[in-house]
Design a protein around this nucleic acid. Structure first.
Lengths: 205, 205
DNA sequence: CAAATATACTAAACACTGTTTAGTAAGCAA
DNA sequence: TTGCTTACTAAACAGTGTTTAGTATATTTG
């Protein structure tokens, strides 16, 4: 009998309905100002219904966190068409900055907020999405090493170092701490710093 | 008449009483779980009283943010005794990491949370504390340039680049995103990355 | 087909949150 | 002693995430 299957589909539809409304509100007004009641209103269901499909607000944020990674990987993945590994790494950096600036709330969810990590912790799962993205960075760095760009053979540490810089740069900008530059010169400052950093790793990583 | 002065003193005492209770609770249970009511209970006053001394919760957080910077500058300032500027920069890095790990909630307040910046924005003031700390970093870098360690003459960009790396590294750790290492090897990983980064800037900044 | 059961949903409550308002009691000045 | 100011608070306002108990509807069973 197909009833069970239909119910399963309907359940999945409902999860998507909730998630889409959540994403919309979340991106429109930010995490802090989006309430379960607001999401419930948007889909014209009671707040309690949401708890039949998602354990709590953290789980809802975690689901958004997951497709934020999907989106980022799609955008970063485009660099695969670049043959030279160092040029590919550079473009990856540009795309990373672009993604962070264009999706500040998602970036927060992916790399700054504790909520999604707590869901992961109490499920006793690993941070798959993050590790996959980190793995992609390691691949590109490995290619750079193999092409003779970098001499350092510890890919893990090289990747962590590069990611730390990138994450720090965009975090400082997104969290409004780049006040050593005037508002309209912050992007330019980031650009200059990025050029400096990339020339540094090219010369001596 | 000394009555006005006494009242002024009492007002200042009350502000400190509130702030000390706020700091204690905040460090004990974190920002999110500390409520105005909790602070009011701790000092045995009504919640409304707190609003006679601080405009809102953001202002309370901003006050803590200020003495978090005071504390950090005290700890970082110790490196002034190191003569060699590059060794001084290295030690500053160590101290920065140490401070972040030992005071994760304060670090959040200083460099990640938006609340203190919002208070600053609506007061139309600049981020004095942050710029002062950044200025100290620039001083040390200038010394490194003058001593012939670094060839790059754009101190502002060099400082931003170094700070970005440091901030990224500690943020990734503090926000539990360093899952490429097992829990007990994350500090070691940071150490290795720090060594790599410092060797990179020594060779080619 | 009717009765029993399972499912989907919600109203209302619980226990909180930051913040404001209106009112009280004490301290001080005239 | 009267009038005014200051310090404080009880209670309310408008929200929050989450849970409970109960109601219809849909499905399965006798």
């Amino acid at each position: 009998m197909g009833i069970a299957e239909r119910k399963e589909r309907e359940k999945e539809d409902m999860r998507k309905l909730i998630l889409n409304a959540a994403r919309k509100l979340f991106l429109e007004q930010g995490y802090e100002k989006t309430s379960i009641r607001g999401i419930a209103d948007a889909i014209e269901y009671s707040p309690a219904t949401i708890y039949l499909y998602y354990k709590d607000k953290n789980e809802l944020l975690f689901a958004l966190h997951e497709d934020a990674f999907l989106k980022m990987m799609q955008e970063l993945g485009q660099v695969r068409s670049i043959h030279d590994p160092f040029a590919r790494l550079l473009e990856m950096g540009h795309q990373y900055i672009k993604y962070a600036i264009e999706n500040p709330e998602l970036y927060d969810l992916m790399f700054i907020m504790k909520a999604p990590m707590e869901t992961l912790a109490c499920r006793e799962e690993i941070w798959e999405d993050g590790l996959k993205a980190f793995g992609f960075l390691k691949e590109v760095i490995t290619d750079c090493v193999n092409a003779g760009y970098f001499k350092n053979k510890n890919i893990e540490i090289s990747a962590l170092t590069i990611w730390s810089y990138m994450h720090g740069l965009v975090s400082i900008y997104l969290k409004n701490r780049m006040t050593m530059f005037q508002d309209d010169q912050q992007l330019q400052g980031m650009q200059q710093s990025f050029i400096l950093f990339t020339s540094m790793i090219r010369d001596s990583l």
